[in-house]
Amino acid sequence: MREGQYLFGQWSDDLHLGLLWSQAHPFPSSTKTPTWPQIPSWFWASLNAPVAWSEEYQPSDRHTNPRQLCKSIKPMTQPDSHATTLVGNLMRLRDDVQHQETRLISKAAGRIEIYSGALGRCDFEVDQWYFDSLEGKDDETKTRSMLRTVFVIPLFHRDSQLVTCLVLLPLPTSGRGVFRRVGILHIHIISGRLRSDFTPMAQEYQKDITENFYQDCDGEGFYKISIV
């Protein structure tokens, strides 16, 4: 028998991996995908659409075991709350789009690639409702709109060169440091290999994170936030 807490179809003892889902492709062409507001966004059933889990973290002889990057993930820590509290390397990537070596490419609706001279290849997989809400009609305009809006927080790295993150949308009307999950991001690092943690690289993307976007900070690159 499992010792973890059962949470909306997931177990608390492997919630890190349970968060690595995204909306399956192709998106339906008729209408936006509705969401269920009574179900927390970090749970796959909040999306009224097929979902898939990241293939990079399925068991395989080709890969080493993934290394967890968050200090902690604590689901539903407050009474009558469905929020999950994370402590990790909260980041904003928007400054990186100004880099002269950065290229923006959209593979399909909701699947966006960014080739960054600073990070490597960044593969975004965002939900349809969010992708359709972005400003602009062409792919590049939508991508830049997304990068001005979202934050990311790394969950795992695998094989020293792959970092997988949650993509988060801030909800300022819900309180300080409160976010909604809108997708996942895979960062394929091409300039070197990760040795022990992601914090030194993450700190390059934390320079404009103001106190209204987090609940606490340890001063060393780790921020406390909630996802509802």
Rank of each mutant, 00 (worst) to 15 (best):
G110N: 05
W36C: 09
R180I: 00
S29W: 04
D61E: 10
L7C: 07
V152M: 05
T31D: 13
P37D: 01
G192N: 05
Q68I: 02
K142Y: 00
T64I: 05
I227T: 06
C165T: 08
L194F: 13
T143Y: 01
L162N: 12
I190M: 12
I225V: 09
R2M: 10
L19T: 03
M201Q: 12
S160T: 09
S29T: 13
Q68A: 06
L93S: 02
I153Y: 03
F198H: 07
R2T: 13
T102K: 07
L194E: 14
P59W: 03
V178F: 02
G9C: 06
Q38A: 09
K32T: 09
L168A: 02
E3R: 15
Q23M: 08
D139C: 02
Y130S: 04
S81H: 08
R2I: 07
T77V: 11
D80W: 13
G177R: 08
G183D: 05
T141K: 01
L47T: 09
T102C: 10
F222R: 11
N89G: 11
C217R: 06
I112Q: 10
D139V: 00
P75W: 03
W42C: 09
Y205W: 15
F156T: 06
D123Q: 09
T149R: 11
G9Y: 07
T85P: 08
L69T: 11
I209M: 08
F179N: 08
D197C: 08
L20C: 12
R148M: 02
G177Q: 09
T102D: 05
S116Y: 02
I105G: 00
I225W: 04
G192P: 06
M201Y: 05
Y223L: 06
Q203S: 14
D208H: 09
S116Q: 02
T64G: 12
S174H: 15
Q206C: 12
H16V: 06
R181N: 12
E140T: 01
I209Y: 06
V228C: 10
L15W: 06
Q23F: 02
S160I: 07
F156W: 10
Q58A: 13
T77K: 06
L93E: 04
P59N: 09
G136A: 00
K142F: 00
K74W: 05
L104V: 07
L119T: 15
D13I: 04
P40T: 03
F151T: 01
H157K: 13
Y6V: 05
L20W: 01
Q215D: 08
